[in-house]
Design a protein around this nucleic acid. Structure first.
Length: 224
DNA sequence: GAATAGATTGTCT
DNA sequence: GACAATCTATTCT
């Protein structure tokens, strides 16, 4: 048995007990398409605190979004849609808001993004980290680690594995019944440059990453 | 806690 | 054929 490290900040053991959290989710309505049909920086910030829900055959899994990044093609050189690049991979970003854009990262991980703004504008919001809310045991099983470890979902690839988001989620409607966002409380929000986009020159310096301050699931601790 | 190397494949030049 | 919006284990301090 490894000793349990001391807890800092918010975590699954804080706040409401799990049955109460489940009851909260029952009464809430998924966010409408209007929520997504706004500029990428607005949506990226607004997503902090919202609860991402995925209904899977194994059960419902959900987590509060605590870290996002805005990608604003075609001018943003860090975006996959930079320069208006339109391929089978980026196609969904050119469509209407409120759909999932999935892509493979470093050959072995998936990343989950939300298509935002209006049709013809290839903008997206990358979800980089969530705080588990429901389905902790399912996430733990999928990740192969204990449910109280932050590594359950403190990164884009990790949260996709925890929520079972992959190729099948590409183009999925977030205003449907399987994958959607619910309202949720957000703490103080911090900003920083985006992570690992150094190749994008001046665009890499823009503070287009948003995160909940003090949340232990934020993937990369911000530099001050 | 920080730094490093290795894994592994879809996508595009 | 090169590279990537990363993760993990390992090796430091």
């Amino acid at each position: 048995m490894r000793p349990t490290p001391p807890r800092r900040g918010r975590g699954p053991s804080d706040g409401a007990a799990l049955p109460e959290r489940a009851a909260l989710l029952e009464g809430a309505a998924p966010l409408p398409r209007d929520f997504y049909a706004r500029p990428p920086l607005v949506v990226a910030r607004a997503c902090i605190g919202k609860v991402l829900v995925h209904r899977t055959p194994e059960g419902i899994v959900a987590g509060r979004i605590v870290e996002t990044e805005a990608y604003r093609g075609p001018e943003d050189l860090a975006a996959h849609s930079a320069g208006g690049r339109r391929t089978s991979r980026t196609e969904v970003m050119f469509g209407p808001a409120g759909y999932a854009y999935m892509f493979v990262l470093y050959g072995m991980h998936w990343a989950f993004n939300i298509v935002v703004a209006s049709e013809g504008e290839p903008h997206a919001v990358l979800v980089r980290a969530i705080e588990p809310v429901l389905g902790l045991s399912i996430m733990s099983h999928r990740r192969g680690i204990a449910p109280d470890r932050v590594a359950l979902s403190n990164g884009p690839g990790k949260l996709c594995q925890a929520l079972a988001l992959g190729r099948a989620a590409y183009g999925m409607d977030l205003c449907g019944a399987r994958l959607y966002l619910l309202p949720g409380p957000a703490g103080p929000i911090g900003r920083s440059p985006r992570i690992n986009v150094d190749y994008a020159g001046a665009w890499a310096q823009k503070p287009w990453r948003f995160y909940e301050r003090g949340n232990r699931y934020v993937s990369v601790s911000p530099r001050h």
